Amino acid sequence: MKPLVALAFAAVLAGCSAQYRNHGYAPMEGDLEQVLVGVDTRETVASVVGRPTSAGLLESGGWYYVESRWRQFAWKAPVEIDREVVAISFDGDGVVENVERFGLEEGNVVVLSRRVTDTNIKGVSFLRQLFGNFGNFAADQFLGDG
Score class of each variant (00 low, 15 high):
Arg114Thr: 10
Leu112Glu: 13
Val5Leu: 15
Arg71Cys: 04
Asn136Phe: 07
Val5Pro: 10
Met1Leu: 06
Ser47Trp: 01
Gly56Phe: 06
Ser68Met: 03
Trp70Asp: 06
Glu33Trp: 08
Leu130Trp: 00
Gln72Lys: 14
Arg83Met: 02
Leu130Val: 05
Ala55Leu: 10
Gly103Trp: 00
Gly132Tyr: 01
Trp70Arg: 02
Val5Asn: 13
Phe134Tyr: 07
Arg83Asn: 04
Tyr25Leu: 04
Val96Thr: 06
Leu127Asp: 00
Ala6Ser: 14
Asp31Lys: 05
Leu58Pro: 14
Leu112Tyr: 01
Asp140Gly: 14
Ala18His: 10
Leu104Gly: 03
Ser17Lys: 12
Gly62Trp: 00
Glu106Phe: 03
Val79Leu: 02
Arg101Asn: 07
Ser17Val: 10
Val99Gln: 06
Tyr25Lys: 05
Gly135Ala: 04
Gly103Gln: 05
Glu105Phe: 02
Val116Ile: 03
Lys122Tyr: 05
Glu100Gly: 07
Ile81Gly: 08
Glu100Pro: 04
Glu84Pro: 13
Asp140Ile: 09
Met1Cys: 08
Met1Gly: 15
Leu36Ile: 09
Tyr25Thr: 07
Pro3Asp: 09
Lys2Phe: 11
Thr119Gln: 11
Phe102Pro: 02
Leu143Val: 10
Met1Ile: 04
Leu112His: 02
Gly146Thr: 14
Gln141Ile: 01
Phe131Cys: 04
Gly38Val: 01
Phe102Thr: 00
Gln141Tyr: 09
Met1Tyr: 11
Glu84Tyr: 03
Ile121Trp: 02
Phe9Leu: 15
Phe137Gly: 10
